[in-house]
Design a protein around this nucleic acid. Sequence first.
DNA 1: CGGTATCAGGAAAGCGCTTACCTCAAGGTT
DNA 2: AACCTTGAGGTAAGCGCTTTCCTGATACCG
Lengths: 334, 334
Amino acid sequence: MATLADVARRAGVSTATASRIINGSSKPVTEELRTRVLAAVAELRYVPNAHAQMLARSNRNAVGVLVHDVSDPYFAEITRGLQRVATAHGRLVIICNTFREPARELEYIDLLHAHQVAAIVVAGSGYLSSDAETELHERMAAFETTGGRIAVIGRHSHTSDAVLPANEEGGFLAGDHLFALGHTAVGVIAGPAALTTTADRLAGLHRAAAAHGATLTVVHADFTRDGGEAATLKLLADEPALTAVAALNDSMAVGALSAMRTCGRTLSVVGFDDMPVARDVTPALTSVRLPLTELGERAMELALTPPTGSSPRVEHIPAELIRRESTWPLSRPT
Amino acid sequence: MATLADVARRAGVSTATASRIINGSSKPVTEELRTRVLAAVAELRYVPNAHAQMLARSNRNAVGVLVHDVSDPYFAEITRGLQRVATAHGRLVIICNTFREPARELEYIDLLHAHQVAAIVVAGSGYLSSDAETELHERMAAFETTGGRIAVIGRHSHTSDAVLPANEEGGFLAGDHLFALGHTAVGVIAGPAALTTTADRLAGLHRAAAAHGATLTVVHADFTRDGGEAATLKLLADEPALTAVAALNDSMAVGALSAMRTCGRTLSVVGFDDMPVARDVTPALTSVRLPLTELGERAMELALTPPTGSSPRVEHIPAELIRRESTWPLSRPT
DNA sequence: CGGTATCAGGAAAGCGCTTACCTCAAGGTT
DNA sequence: AACCTTGAGGTAAGCGCTTTCCTGATACCG
């Protein structure tokens, strides 16, 4: 490893001068020294040690991102937005995959903290009142007291800035759509019961059901396609009278479509998130759109902007129903 | 920011002792001091400064990953494999999105170099003989001379370890399948012409065509769904006699399916990569499977294992044709 | 009881950089 | 000619940690 000292020696200058030239400091320097130093840099293939720089400057340049799973399209889209904004601000992004394990979340928060990142974005649903969730918020607070910034996406927090997708409203939209079409026996493929996202979307669905005087049959799955397929198979077997299904994300909706195909049933299906796959399945999926990329962009924007006031900022992102071909009116039997 | 010195002061010990206790060094320490220090750590919410640690220890712990685009399912799957292995080795993963810009690739290599990562995995196709490509290999070499390790996925390199998917063979598989079904007028939705992946897959297709005495009509797109759709629309208009299409990745194959739907044609379609979406579209896509997660795992394994010999290691990953419903035999017109 | 091995803990030297401060020489002022 | 600017570059003090070496106290030996 060539060091600054090597470069300086080779160019016959002090490390101070070398540093100033390399960093393009405002201090004036003779043209001759400048070329000598730059030549030495090239010859030695010198690359400054970022850790030493961090230490000396004690400024923070990277930002960390905590996501449940990058290969899940939901998070992939969000991550895309996060990266776009971070890159535009010249920030390095460190992505950490928690694999949905709360313990790993804690670990990573500390890791990012240790790496002196400028900000951390925590994306993805939290857990309904668990110890790990409490502990997480404590660590987040500890990070913030050191001057770090935190923004959460779709996670409740009363200390950090947050971007909140309209999960409850989206659930309502999905339910209202189905009920307005005349369906009364509606099944719900929900996500894990412990997640706030599941709870919120479900709440919206229940609100819609109540408004139409209908009831819902809920089964819980794990937000994956195969999980959704299995859950739908079971639901269809247990409740043969259902005429429509609401899945709490598109992956599970796709699974539901597949399940219906294998048992030869055709129920209306509404998904959630409007992921790219929604328009490519048959029938094209009616889905509640959440602008995922935008979610990521706004969160990163919040994380990189100094707090305006004292209280945390909260942005609400609306949901929108995208009607396609997987939902149709039910002609009332009576 | 609480520092080690703060902890030491509070516990009434030297920083040396505090450091040893916190890092669980082998040096023996009285139980009393240990509890005092640990208490101070907890009270002060002390998190060691990773940069200072790096500098003092000069050991490398993180690994960097360069991908074209995390939100592309192709890379998402690979990334998943990379992360799994890295995490199993206790390594922090830094994911860098190059957005397919060669300049950004160079930038990121240096950045990761500066951050003293232990290894860098470069995932994704390279460019056929461009200046940026040459420069990239030089920077990679520079990084390796400092003790860093490099592994590439699906990219040609004669200095670094590499994991190579059987792109040429996969292309052959796709072509052979179509020709064996009796198709002779076959269109190809290729990726960007400058990418080696495009060239390799195309070469396999051409080999199959030659073996069957057939010819191919090739159009280039950009590996995205919409790009594939547009290219297919054009291809169908220009060459009305085509009876089958090979797309060089599944995203474009999905686009091709959509294009065919809009102009009411039904050609056989074979995709490439066998991404999750392949089985959920209608008709379910016949595709050349590449075990993407495994690709990532093997690459990270290579990157984290000290080189065995002097020459770079190369792993070839075979491709496999998955037959579904999007391809069918053509009854020869004559 | 002097001498030595053993042990807990501290002092301090870096790791590779940045930067405030200092020095020295040349040119400008009156 | 004495004094002050100003410009160009160097000196050295950290940044927060790890780790080697050292110190002082205690225990063990004949």
